[in-house]
Simulated scan of single mutants.
Amino acid sequence: MEEESSSRIMSDDEFMKLVKLAQTKSDVEAMNTIFQYFDQDIKRLSKLLRMPKEDAIQSMKTQPLELIMKKNKKPFIEKLFLELYRKQLI
């Protein structure tokens, strides 16, 4: 259990660097790293939603992707993602 949580540790700077790469360069690898970071949480939370598990997972991945790709609201999105990341809500 401890190994799993320690492998999920990421600094704020690292996280925001990934968000910026995904925003500015549409970096698929950066987006995948973000999804992998939250994969355990997404799967756990998908069980709580009243919809098929696959649909819940897809929805929880689509919403952050849409937020990240909205480049025109970049400062707001960066603050939002950083706050959610700090609270471990996504």
Rank of each mutant, 00 (worst) to 15 (best):
L18A: 06
L49T: 05
E54W: 01
L84S: 07
I77D: 03
Q23V: 09
I68R: 01
K47F: 11
L49S: 06
D13M: 07
E83M: 06
L21K: 12
D39F: 03
I42M: 05
M51C: 06
I90V: 09
K61Y: 04
L48N: 13
Q58Y: 00
K74M: 08
D41M: 13
P52K: 02
Y85R: 02
M69E: 09
E83V: 06
Q58T: 14
T62E: 12
A56C: 06
F38T: 08
M16T: 10
T62Y: 03
K74N: 09
D55W: 01
Q36G: 15
K61E: 13
L84C: 10
M10H: 07
R86P: 00
K47Q: 14
T24K: 14
V19P: 00
R50T: 12
I57W: 00
I34N: 03
Q58R: 11
K17H: 08
L65P: 00
M60G: 06
D13C: 05
P75E: 08
L84V: 07
F35D: 10
L45G: 01
M69G: 05
T33F: 01
R86D: 01
R50G: 06
I42D: 02
D39V: 01
I77Q: 02
L48M: 11
D55G: 06
F38H: 10
R44M: 13
K43G: 05
F35M: 13
N72G: 08
D55R: 07
F15I: 03
M60W: 01
E29F: 06
D27M: 04
K73Q: 11
F35R: 14
S6N: 10
K70C: 08
E66D: 07
I77T: 14
M51K: 06
Y85C: 00
M51L: 08
S46Y: 05
L65R: 10
E14C: 04
Y37P: 00
F38A: 14
A56P: 10
Q40R: 15
N32R: 11
I34S: 04
K71R: 15
I90T: 03
I42T: 10
R50M: 10
L18M: 07
S5R: 12
E4N: 11
S59Y: 06
D12R: 10
K73D: 10
K20I: 11
L67N: 09
L48G: 13
K20Q: 11
K73R: 12
R8Q: 15
P52Q: 02
M16I: 12
Q63H: 09
I34Q: 03
S11K: 07
K17R: 13
A22N: 01
E66I: 09
M16F: 02
K79C: 04
T62K: 11
T24C: 07
I42G: 03
